[in-house]
Design a protein around this nucleic acid. Structure first.
Lengths: 235, 235
DNA sequence: ATCCTTAGTGTAAAGTTTCAACTAACTTAG
DNA sequence: CTAAGTTAGTTGAAACTTTACACTAAGGAT
């Protein structure tokens, strides 16, 4: 048996590997996740995290596969992107031992043109209540989504991740509102601004003001390219 | 081509999946990582992170496979254990597109009986200088190890992870020394003790003292089972 | 012109962290 | 047996951060 294990040519020892995405956006209704309704077995008709296979024959890397899935489903190319983890056992897919490499992405819902095709009959934003969606999900996607939500909520506490849920230019009041909605509690204005002032990659766009509210407000932007990871703590 | 992608029976679309481990321990020489010398192609004679294949035919889960590899190489069963990430592309293994699911483990080196067999001709602890070992590593293991070391160093700042590098019972002075060695800087005794006092799963073992130094010291232990994950921040 | 709302700042009180000294228990050297 | 040295554990004042909340200013609406 051990000999068979070590034979790389034994294809039946290779698991099914999918790349799945927890794509988050903030809508007027709160934090939502993009789900796809399955058009094929197993779990036909169930909602699931959008996913796909790796194009091994095209030498596509893991992250490239994840970005392709995101682009295929949303038309969005380079938002915030992070690997959440790997989930693998014999029970999660009735077709056999399988492995899901899960990424999470934060995007602006306005920029998105939802696409469905292939094995998917519908795609829609679903609100998150607590740590789950209202509908049951296919496979172990409820558990995977829970992991992604926990990671997102944790990172809100100690990173500037919420900027990725806003457009390129934003005011500090808008940013604070995003933090408050994600954290579910109000923040002190003065303390919030002091903290953002310490972060050197959130910079004012000199001269540019927003007139939307009843008073003009300074616009801010990220210093680096939007897709860059820039946390104080790497994880 | 897209049809072939979606056909789960197309085994050649399945990547090679290995489980690799960054096993850390603290020795008198500092932080060390357990490496295995490869006895087979590719990279024969090179040092590599210990790893193995998943026993798909035995319905073994991903984490079970990682724990089996740890147990096979060290004889240690339940130390601190955490998934670091997945690394997958066409270039990392000359045999073709492959995927490495990497875990890190923290253990006590005294408890270990190093084993080598199968495809491995030697196993040894290697000191870590900066973010790497002195020897070049097989595959992309140098990059994987760097990711694991960064994760470990980060977590030392905001978790009690270093307790896993000590025996069941330890004094606060010993724990502080571990933190200082991992962080590479001295810590204030009073501040360190205040912080540990806030952590409710590090508890004094009442009545038990250590007489090793020139003065008896209170022994402490973890409240939960050693293998439990118990961070303030999940990641 | 007056009132209302929201952007942005100032400040005093409360809380934390740091630094360094201190006490106490034991070992070792003479 | 005593004095000196080492380490465990505590204390408290000074420095620094965070919090709460009030204040000023720039519009829009009436």
């Amino acid at each position: 048996m051990f000999a068979a294990m070590n034979n790389i040519e034994d294809l039946h020892q290779r698991p099914i590997v999918s790349v799945d995405l927890a794509i988050f956006a903030l809508t007027p209704d709160g934090l939502e996740v993009l789900l796809a309704r399955r058009g094929v077995e197993p779990f036909t008709g169930h909602w699931a995290l959008p996913g796909g296979w790796i194009h091994v024959d095209e030498d596509e890397s893991l992250e490239a596969a994840a970005r392709r899935v995101l682009s295929d489903k949303t038309g969005v190319a380079a938002p915030y992107f992070e690997q959440v983890g790997v989930f693998g056992d014999a029970a999660r897919d009735p077709r056999g031992w399988s492995l899901s490499v899960t990424y999470m992405a934060l995007i602006m819902p306005d920029a998105v043109i939802l696409q469905h095709g292939g094995n998917v009959t519908d795609a829609a934003w679903h609100p998150i209540a607590g740590e789950a969606t209202a509908q049951p999900l296919a496979f172990d996607h409820a558990a995977i989504l829970k992991t992604a939500i926990t990671r997102l909520r944790n990172k809100v506490e100690y990173t500037t991740l919420p900027v990725h849920l806003l457009p390129e230019a934003f005011t500090l009041s808008e940013l604070q509102a995003v933090y408050e909605r994600l954290l579910g509690r109000l923040l002190d204005k003065s303390a919030f601004r002091k903290r953002i002032a310490e972060v050197d990659f959130i910079v004012p766009i000199v001269g540019e003001m927003r007139r939307a509210s009843n008073r003009p407000a300074q616009l801010y932007r990220l210093k680096q390219a939007r897709s860059t990871v820039f946390f104080d703590r790497t994880i």
